[in-house]
Amino acid sequence: MYFPINKLEYICIQPDEPLTNIVESIWMVKNHSDEEKEGIIVPDGKIDLFLLADENGNFEIFVSGLCSAPITKPPFPKSTMFAISFYPIAAEYIFKQSFADLNNMKKTFPTDYWGFSRDDLNDFNQFYHKTFKIISSLLSKEIDDRKKKLFKLIHASKGEITVKELEENVFWSSRQMNRYFHKWLGVTLKTYLNIIRFSNSLKQLKNGDFYPQLDYADQSHFIREVKKFAGVKPIILNKNENDRFIQFSLMPDK
């Protein structure tokens, strides 16, 4: 998928097997504007690895843990960002480290992390194929079927599934699932479900539909949850003045 949005150039690709249970997408954003403005990232239930370069020659590689609240992003004018959005299961199977301490935070890696370099930002197609090979090589053990099913059910249900339903379908106790989420991600299973449900509401909010389509108790509950995860009421999020909500700006209309 490719489309320019204002002064942002955006491409997003969903990977094929064997990465479909690990990687949600591989994408790039080129900011052609020289305007200095902050942005806001809202929770979407993913772990993201970024390669970022600006026109002054600065280059960094960093990872962001799960977000459970809106995060203010510093301005990146005249910059190129390539990114890999991972499902949370990647913490255990790809990064092989806990992200519990990186909730709403980022961690900077060496500029040769995983063999990447600034030169990889010259060609997105080559970056995609290189990324595919790297992550495939890092996936050194078979993913537990319970964990694959757990995340598949959560995302297929758009976060509407209950913890009890997950217990019954995955054959994993709520205590064990919560222990897993605490250990690797630093959030409860219920919080993660709420994040996924909120993230799946963004499309309708962009289209101007402020009445909950997912299983919120009522409109007041919906508004509270949007304020919790976006920091503003639905109508303010919909207006998205100055394109300050990054994911909202990159989302195609209709």
Rank of each mutant, 00 (worst) to 15 (best):
F3W: 08
E9M: 02
I13H: 08
E17Y: 11
L19P: 06
V23N: 03
E24M: 09
V29S: 02
K30G: 03
E35G: 04
K37Y: 10
K37G: 00
D44K: 10
F50M: 10
L51Y: 06
N56I: 02
E60C: 06
E60P: 00
C67R: 13
C67G: 14
S68G: 05
K73T: 15
P74C: 03
F76P: 00
S79R: 03
M81P: 01
F82S: 01
A83P: 01
S85H: 09
Y87Q: 04
A91C: 13
F95Y: 09
K96W: 00
Q97R: 14
D101V: 13
L102P: 00
N104I: 01
T108A: 03
P110M: 00
D112T: 11
D112H: 13
G115V: 10
F116Y: 15
D119H: 11
N122W: 01
N122D: 12
N125M: 12
F127A: 06
F127Q: 03
K130G: 05
K130V: 06
K130C: 05
T131P: 05
F132Q: 11
K133G: 08
S136W: 10
L138D: 03
L139C: 08
S140K: 15
S140A: 07
D145C: 09
D145Q: 14
R146N: 15
L150E: 01
F151R: 10
K152D: 13
I154V: 15
I154L: 07
H155I: 13
A156W: 04
S157D: 09
S157H: 10
K164I: 14
E165V: 07
N169S: 12
W172F: 12
M177R: 12
K183G: 02
L185A: 12
G186A: 06
L193S: 04
I195D: 01
I195K: 01
I196N: 11
R197A: 02
S199N: 14
N200K: 07
S201L: 04
D209P: 00
E225W: 00
F229Y: 15
A230L: 06
V232L: 06
K233Q: 14
P234L: 03
I236C: 04
N238C: 12
F248S: 03
S249D: 03
